[in-house]
């Protein structure tokens, strides 16, 4: 019953997010602040992880190609496919569920604990619109982060390939250009938009409706991370089934 109640409360929160909008002059500031906190603030860690995981994917692929009959450009091909289809949109989203999700839950949860949300409601402000909507809009720029992750993942793979001596630059570039299907990028970005929606709303839900004190803020952050990850993994499976099979 609790799960059903929470699912219902989540969808009511989504509806309330679009009701009674906050003044544009105020909302604009909030959106830019959230873009800075959620998008710009995540670029460093995303770039670092993407570059090195791209390299690891390349090394592992190269090491598993033992037959001389398999062409070396397959390393580039496998890296591109792994990074574009799965690593950048899904793996980075799980990392963002930890980084951005816990930030959203703890910041909104702290506002709940310290009665700042009550203060907004007393003033007649739609607190859900004020707090959640700017995060939702900011995270609509999340595909920009994923584009960078895709690019740096492939560059990381290239660096590992060349400096590790697994294949030549020409082979790698041939591999990443081979049998390119543009719909795979579309598929990745459709997933990215869906995951961005989850990243903005699930942690906000856990922060907004939390009860208790500082300890519960920590628990809510952990719960938000777990549920955001679970939902991302499930939606990843459903979207892959729908779009690629």
């Amino acid at each position: 019953m609790t799960y059903l109640h929470n699912i219902g409360a989540y969808f009511i929160m989504i509806k309330d997010m679009f009701r009674k909008p906050t003044k544009w002059s105020v909302m604009k500031t909030l959106i830019f602040k959230d873009i800075d906190d959620l998008i710009i603030g995540s670029l460093g860690i995303v770039a670092f992880i993407s570059f090195f995981v791209g390299g690891v994917v390349t090394i592992q692929t190269a090491l598993n190609i033992t037959s001389p009959l398999i062409p070396k450009y397959l390393v580039g091909f496998a890296t591109r496919q792994s990074v574009i289809l799965e690593f950048a949109p899904t793996f980075i989203s799980i990392i963002m569920a930890g980084k951005v999700g816990s930030f959203i839950t703890s910041s909104i949860g702290t506002m709940r604990v310290t009665e700042q949300i009550d203060a907004l409601e007393v003033m007649g402000i739609n607190a859900i619109n004020y707090l959640v909507f700017p995060k939702f809009i900011a995270l609509m720029l999340y595909p920009f982060v994923i584009s960078i992750a895709m690019f740096l993942g492939i560059i990381g793979g290239m660096a590992a390939c060349i400096y590790g001596g697994f294949s030549t630059l020409d082979d790698y570039i041939t591999g990443i250009q081979m049998d390119f299907i543009p719909f795979h990028v579309t598929y990745a970005f459709i997933k990215t938009f869906v995951f961005a929606f989850c990243l903005a709303t699930i942690p906000s839900f856990h922060g907004y409706f939390m009860k208790g004190g500082a300890l519960e803020v920590g628990k809510a952050s952990t719960t938000a991370f777990v549920w955001t990850s679970v939902v991302i993994i499930l939606l990843n499976y459903i979207l892959t089934q729908l779009l690629l099979s």
Partner: peptide, 27 residues
Amino acid sequence: MGMVFQGSALFDSMTILENVMFPLRMF
């Protein structure tokens, strides 16, 4: 309505001036 909360409930991401200006910005 104006409300003074037990814990003050000031918006901790804003300066004191911004906190006081907040209702004016909204309404």
